[in-house]
Design a protein around this nucleic acid. Sequence first.
DNA 1: TTTTTGAACGTAATCGATTTCGATACTTGT
DNA 2: ACAAGTATCGAAATCGATTACGTTCAAAAA
Lengths: 339, 339
Amino acid sequence: MVTITDISRRCNVSRATVSKALNGHSDINAETAAHIRQAAKEMGYLPNATARALKLGRSHNIGVLFVDKTSSGLGHEYFSQILESVKQEAERSGYDITFISRDIGTLHMDYYEHAKYRNCDGVIVASVDFTDPAVIKLVNSDIPTVTLDYVFDSHSAVLSDNVGGMADLVRFVYDRGHRKIAFIHGEPTSVTQKRLASFHKTCSELGLTIPEEYVEAATFHDPKASGLATRRLLALKDRPTCILYPDDFSFIGGMNELEKQGVSIPGDMSVAGYDGILLSQVLRPRLTTYRQDAEAMGREAAHELVEIIERPKEWIPRQIMIPGRLLTGDTVRDIREGF
Amino acid sequence: MVTITDISRRCNVSRATVSKALNGHSDINAETAAHIRQAAKEMGYLPNATARALKLGRSHNIGVLFVDKTSSGLGHEYFSQILESVKQEAERSGYDITFISRDIGTLHMDYYEHAKYRNCDGVIVASVDFTDPAVIKLVNSDIPTVTLDYVFDSHSAVLSDNVGGMADLVRFVYDRGHRKIAFIHGEPTSVTQKRLASFHKTCSELGLTIPEEYVEAATFHDPKASGLATRRLLALKDRPTCILYPDDFSFIGGMNELEKQGVSIPGDMSVAGYDGILLSQVLRPRLTTYRQDAEAMGREAAHELVEIIERPKEWIPRQIMIPGRLLTGDTVRDIREGF
DNA sequence: TTTTTGAACGTAATCGATTTCGATACTTGT
DNA sequence: ACAAGTATCGAAATCGATTACGTTCAAAAA
């Protein structure tokens, strides 16, 4: 392994000079610097990130905290895409990605300790239980953090537009004549709260009164739960004409139930999903769904974190709202008069 | 930040003693060691992985090389699961995960250089173009590597049982009376080669002669390509009775095409997928598919890599075959006489 | 000519932890 | 009681890179 010392010997200069030449300091003669850089290239020199990190106290490493209670972990397409996008943006700025978790090896540590142990310059927190004390400890530590889909005081966050998305969906189906709109939501998280609030707000803005039975609880990413919720909705004496699902994957469970009961989509029942994962756009009929811009979320989160790390003075906490896009699909039937 | 020096001052011992006490060396008095450990705990001491890595030349960091030409990157459920599993097993052994890529920041480097730069103790290589010179350079370097689904000479590899899986599928449909079996395969990779060879071998063992037109080329994870291939198969004067798809996601494209042409599954056409992703088991009818044990693959790959890193003497390259499991599903109809 | 100035480079400390090689004091054997 | 052995701990080098500060020497200013 070629070190700075090897280069210094080859060029008959001190290690300090080599370091300064390689980092473009101004107090090195241009010719000398060129010579050193040439030698470094010839010798195949690579800076040692570890040594650099030790000396500078900056690792150029970003931690990513992705925990999923359902243990599907990275399995969710939405989070996989965010992660991929975080990775790309981070690399563009010269940062690498390290996963943060507890209990690495025999060491028993929490998230904060792990991040500290690895000298992470910052951490992106997503898909976790934000009420977990370990998460709160990390966020309120000296390590810069950016959260996804959750806001902590005095911290930056990247948010998908759950309010706007839900409103778009409701208005879309309303415009197609639907008045009896059911909503199956996920487990009680801040995301669910926002969507639920937006659902009710938009409905009342449109003058709709939604009976309690039209709002069903299920679980995110769980076709079984949504299938059961669908069954309950179908059992109502006054069936809804449209069902909104908590996510595209949950929709599959509803789809199966509808099919089993001989309810055709969208002939007998209109449906819509949420997320806009790849699957929803290859199924036929194409699912009407609100596509979250996972790519933008990951990119913005990484970008914001790098800003905090590199420009802590000028930085003020902000919430970055990432708008999604309604994918109209073919699962919502137009039931207006004359259609 | 509490360092070893802080502890040494508090305990009136040298830094060497603290280090040895914390690492359980035998030349430290039991009481002294206990006292030091107690102080370390009270002061909230955390070892500095960076300093340790610099001194020891071991980072306890494993690189992961996941590149996907289709740029869906981590989007594939199969690879996401492998990654998650790699991560868990690595952490169990005290290793963290870092992504390896080229061109980190403004530094222009290849995979090997990146891994070296980050002092990775080893790298897991998956889902890449194994003919890429940069990949070959990495694998043939001084950095231990384990590849997934591809074998390099004198290197360990973890392989899903493509031969056995394909054979299982063919025999399964054969047992249900199918003789006209079509196979849509993915782009020409080593995986495709193995499946193709196994397909032909198994067919001939069963005494089947498969016409050329029954073997169609498509692309992995691409419903459009498989949809077109399906259309070509349906256009044949002598249609197959069963179609094997390159993967579950590709099956969706076929499903759409079949539905469009009014061909029911499995009434008019039997089908099977490959991978056994979550989706395949929530769709109705449940897809007959060969489930790759992604969890085991990731685990074994990480475990093998740690072995290479920690026991280089005793280690000899080996290929670890991970068997999958046939998920029988409901998409293959029994067309034998009397059924 | 003397002083000042600045370009160019080196010295040495530093980051935090590990480890080799002693050094010291104490115990044991003879 | 003296040599030898043992338990315990410390001094200092080391990993690779960075940087504050000092030094040198020559050119410019006084």
